[in-house]
Amino acid sequence: MGVALEHPSNYITTKLRQAVNWGRKYSLWPMPYGTACCAIEFMGTVGAFTDISRFGAEAVRFSPRQSDLLLVAGTISYKQAPILKRIYAQMAEPKWVVAMGVCASSGGFYDNYGTVQGIDTLIPTDLYVAGCPPTPENLLSALVQLQERVDREGLEVLKERHRDSQIA
C-alpha cells in the first residue's frame, strides 16, 4: 500500500482502491462447491498441514451470500448445471470463481454425455488450477495468484466485468 505517514501514530493515507483491495485480498471467503474427489483435497488444504488460514481464506462459508470466492472443486454434471448457475447468481459482488482441478476446468478425462466440459461454459471463471486433483500446495498457489489479481483490479473494472457476465 502506498502509505504516507504524516502524523506517525494517528492516520495513514492511501488510495481508496488500494485500501479496499488490500482488505479484499486477505479476506477471501471461499464457498467450496465441492462435488467430487477435488473436494477431498480441498479438505486437505483446510487441514492443519497446509492450513489455508495463513492466507486469510479460512473462513469457509457454505452460504453463497456470505462468500466472495466460489471454489468449484470437482466434476460438474449437466444435472448440476442449473444449481451451479444459481449459486453463482446468489453471490454478492465482488466475487471470483476458481475452477479447481481439470474436471471443473475442462471436463477432464470425462468427455461424455453427463459431464459439463468446463464450468466456464456456465459461469465466468477467473482462475483454473491444474491437477487431478491439484495438490494442496497447488491450490494455495492459485489462491496467491488470485490475491495478486485482486490487488491489481480497479473498482470500476470489477463492476464492468460482472455487468458483462450477467447470467440468466
Binding site: T35, A36, T75, N112, Y113, T115
Partner: peptide, 11 residues
C-alpha cells in the same frame, strides 16, 4: 442422486 454421474460405465 445422479449429480455426480460421470458415466463410468459408458466410459
Amino acid at each position: 442422486i445422479g449429480y455426480l454421474h460421470r458415466c463410468f460405465e459408458k466410459e
